[in-house]
Each structure stands twice: as C-alpha cells, then as structure tokens.
Design a protein around this nucleic acid. Structure first.
Lengths: 254, 254
DNA sequence: CCGGCCGTAGTGGTCGGACCACATTGGTGA
DNA sequence: TCACCAATGTGGTCCGACCACTACGGCCGG
C-alpha cells in the first residue's frame, strides 16, 4: 500500500479537515483524546506502531507528534517500556515556561519581570496567611544558608529555593509552577551576573529579611509589599540596563 | 558507513555530554544557538539535511527536534521554503500556554482562573491609565457587539476580543499573551457552557459595563477592582461546581 | 520450594533512502 | 515587457531495518 490511499473517514463526515500536516493532526488527535478523558493521567498509550496504524500515518510522523507532546510535558516516553500520559500537573505542563524566559531578551525580559512581580507579590501575600510552621522553617533554612556564604552559585540556589518554598506555601501549585519558570536557573543567572556586581547583596538580604518578617508576623499586606519591592528593584535595574546600553548597540550575547 | 561511527568532535572537547537521546541533544543545541545569539529572530536555518549532518545525526532525529521546537513556537517550518526562527515575541512563545488550559481540569482550572484574576486585574488597571482613544473605541465596539446578539458563539468571540484589547492596552505584551492563553477558546467555551446556563448573562454585561466605565474614567483602582470581581465571579462559580459534583463521581467529559 | 540468573519478546530510539508536495527562481516565448 | 513554465531546492511523508533498553517468564542452582 503506497502513500496515496485516502484514509477513509472514521467519524467526522462533515469535516475531513485535511488541516496542515498529518503530524499536526496526530498531535491534535492525541490532545483531544486526553481532553475528552479517553486517556487518563498516568495511563499507558498503545505502541508507536499501533498508534500510527490507528491514525493511518507512518511511524515517523507519529514519532514526531509524540516527541512534540513530550516536550510539552503532556506525554512521557520510557525507552523499552512504553509511552505514558503524565500526571498533567502544573509542574509537568508549565516546565516549558522556562524556555520563554531563556529565550527572551531586551525589553521582553522587563515585561517578564513585571509579570513575576505581580504573581510573586500575590503569592507571598497568600503565603503569609497560609504558611505552615514546617514550611516557615524551610524558608528560614534557605534564608540562613543564603546569608552564610559568598559563593554566588550557592546564594542563587538558596535564593531560588527561598522563593519557591514561599510560592508553594501560597497553596496555588499552578502559580508556583509559573513562578518557577519565570525564575528558571539560566534566567536568574543571566540577570544576577550584572546585578550583584553593583553591590546589591546587602539590599537583597534586607529585602529577604523583610519578606521573612512579614511571613512570621502573618501580615499579608506587608508580605505583598515586600515581595513587590524586592522584584521591583531588579526590574528597575534591568530596565535601566536596557535603556543604558541601547545607544551603544548590542547587548553582550549570552 | 553504519551508525556506529563516532562523529568526530567539532568544538566542545571537554563535554561530549551524551545526555539522553540525540534528539534531545539537537533540541538543546538549537536552543543554545538562539540563546547565544548565533541565530537571530527571523533568520533562516540551514536545511534539515545540513543540520542533521552538522550535528552528526540522522534527518529523522533532526526532524523530531525541529518539530518539537516548532510546537514550542521557537521555530517555524515553511514547506518548500525553509526553517526560520520566529520573532521570539511573547505571542510566539506563549502560544503553548493554551495547551495547559485545555488539558487542565478540576481543581487546577480554579487555580488557573486565580492566576488569571490576578493578571487580568493588573492589566485592566494599567489599561485604565494607558489606553488610547483608538483602543478604547475598539473596546466599545466589542462591548456593543456583545450586547447586541444572542448567539453564544459570537458573544464568546467578542468577549475574548474585549479582554484582549484591554490587555494589549496595558502595554505589556507578555502579560497579554499569557492572558490570551488562559482565556483560550476551548477553555472559555468549556466554562461558559455551564456558566451561562445559570443566567449569568446579565451579570456579565453589568460587569463588562463597569470595567468599561472605569476605563473611560481613567480610574485604575476602579478598573482593577471591576476586573478582579468579574473573573472572581466565574472563579467562585467554578469552585462551587467542582465541589458540588465531586461526591457524585466524575465530571462530564468534554 | 525458593530465589537469582538469563534468554526472549516487545518497545522506544536511530538510521538511511526513497519519493511527494510546495515555493522559489530563472529562462522562455508570446 | 510580461505571463507562463520548467527546473531546482526544501520541507513532508513513508518504509524497512536495526540498536538499546525494559519487562517478563522460564530455567537452574541452592
């Protein structure tokens, strides 16, 4: 059987809908199956070969579709075992959000930081009302570790954990996952490199301490304000950076 | 020549880094090229065949990598012409955000709506201060069209445009793109189906009118409050829906 | 009877080559 | 001069083969 056979319609007589590429159709098809509940989170899919046969396409095209859904965090392929639907939790699906942060530059970085300021302040405010003693202890651990070392790598690591713990304490996993993407390692590292050269260490410590104080006091408004100011500082600095080196031409790559 | 030949090193002697699959390596490689500025937005890439040769992998694997980056909005393949880097603007990269909304269900939908409430209220507040007369005219057009018809499809369409115009007027394209994803057609359609059955038409119209009034008055605080209340209404309803039909078992598929 | 070992079947991962569909280009002829 | 058309190049699709890994079940020794 060659590749000119028309795969006869199976269910949608009014809309054969030869939309775009067959791969795209396969992607939509699988997404639809999941959306309609035919495929449950964690469930195993048929084999690549079977799926390809079912949709009347080649295994190559089906593999491209599966790969696409894999990078989107919808599917997970286990070599030698099979293809599975992920748990479809916030973390799974929003992992790709980090790519946005990695590839954005110039004015878009400022916009991204503005979004982060809005969400981070909200999350921190919520956390002030909801954080548990255990979570608060975690926050304090990272805060102490951050102040106890001079290794930028370690500081950054604990800084990330500090904010992540707070975001999780807010009780909205989706919001926490988005913030995680907005603070992704490479993104923070890029901004930090220049930021800390301006002696922003002390200021950062003071801001973190203020956030912590608000959490201990269980004061949502103070927590919100402290978080907004904290992100806002970086935001303002970054905005200045961009406008400053704009006349001179290109910003340093990397 | 079979597939065991070692592709001799070309530039990175210290890190052959046989991480995961070759396709994943290709994805990271291309992302890195863009991140380092070697590939500019809009620029055309070498052909699939050349890229595959450069990285020492087969065309099939390279195609999977390209497909993956295509669905992420990083690359764009034009049949017969070539592969291009997108403009890497907010809309390009955040289009995948809609997938999250499409595939989320249950409690996660509420979380998503909570995020939307936070961002939508912020954007609407900003818009009140920044919106131009032309943009305000657009908003009024959609508002009028929305109130002039009974076709749910058309109402939904203008409702989306109403909020999109406002979000764009806020001046943060990234935030607007995220909101676009959070309000993606299928997401809204899913929620709307049940929501409007509860006679929420009138309330929605009043809320939209209130948002519009705040924009005309250029009152950011009022705009913010009106938008938060608007989204909050749907949020509360959805939260109630979820808790209500939870004991009865499964929510209706689709 | 039990438990670790090993072979086998099944699955995703990779490869190479063939051909089709479409876009672009440049020449040709009206 | 300009519309048309053929050639070329590119992404899109398909096929068949084989590799790498997992999972399972029978085999063998204890």
């Amino acid at each position: 059987m060659d590749q000119f056979v028309d795969q006869s319609e199976q269910s949608a007589p009014p809309a054969p809908a030869q939309k775009g590429t067959v791969t795209q159709r396969a992607i939509d098809e699988i997404k639809a199956m999941i959306g309609e509940g035919l495929l449950e989170p964690g469930q195993r899919l048929p084999t690549e070969r079977d799926l390809a046969t079912q949709l009347g396409i080649s295994r190559s095209s089906m593999r491209e579709a599966i790969r696409a859904l894999t990078v989107l965090g919808v599917l997970e392929a286990r070599h030698g075992s099979g293809i599975y639907v992920t748990q479809l939790e916030a973390g799974d699906l929003l992992e790709t959000f980090g790519v946005v942060a990695d590839l954005s530059r110039g004015p878009r970085l400022v916009e991204l930081l503005e979004v982060r300021r809005v969400l981070e302040s909200t999350a921190t405010g919520l956390a002030a009302a909801r954080i548990t003693p255990d979570q608060l202890a975690d926050v304090e651990t990272h805060l102490a570790a951050m102040n106890a070392t001079d290794d930028p790598e370690e500081i950054l690591s604990h800084d990330l954990a500090f904010h992540r713990t707070i975001a999780l304490a807010a009780g909205n996993d989706t919001m926490a996952a988005i913030l995680e993407g907005l603070s992704s390692r490479t993104f923070r590292a890029r901004v930090w490199r220049g930021y800390q050269e301006e002696g922003a260490f002390e200021r950062t410590r003071r801001e973190h301490a203020r956030i912590h104080r608000a959490l201990v006091a269980r004061d949502p408004e103070a927590a919100r304000a402290a978080a907004a100011a904290h992100v806002g500082e970086v935001e303002d600095w970054l905005r200045g950076q961009w406008e400053e080196q704009r006349p001179s031409g290109e910003q340093p790559a990397g």
